[in-house]
């Protein structure tokens, strides 16, 4: 999964999609997922990375990351 190229992501967690005019905000863990996606990481790498950085359990992380990626699709922020 990839984030659309033209989407601007700022350090504050603000996202702007110039193609649609929609803007979004995301929290720090969400921003980290965005950055990893930008770096071209796949889901399992993202999960590994987050597990190293954040204090939580694997199942929780897996469920939440799945939900987050679904929301990115829902908001049409991704491209194949």
């Amino acid at each position: 999964m990839k984030i659309k190229q033209n989407i601007a992501i700022s350090e504050s967690g603000f996202l702007f999609d110039p193609a649609t005019g929609h803007s979004f905000t995301t929290n720090p863990s969400g921003l980290r997922i965005m950055q990893l996606l930008r770096e071209g990481k796949n889901k399992s790498t993202i999960l590994e990375q987050l597990a190293q950085e954040f204090d939580t359990e694997h199942d929780t992380l897996e469920r939440d990351v799945n939900d987050y990626l679904n929301m990115l699709n829902y908001f049409k922020l991704t491209q194949s």
Partner: peptide, 10 residues
């Protein structure tokens, strides 16, 4: 500390 990732449209 972990917080569930969330994204919200404005």
């Amino acid at each position: 500390p972990y917080e569930r990732p969330v994204i919200q449209r404005l």
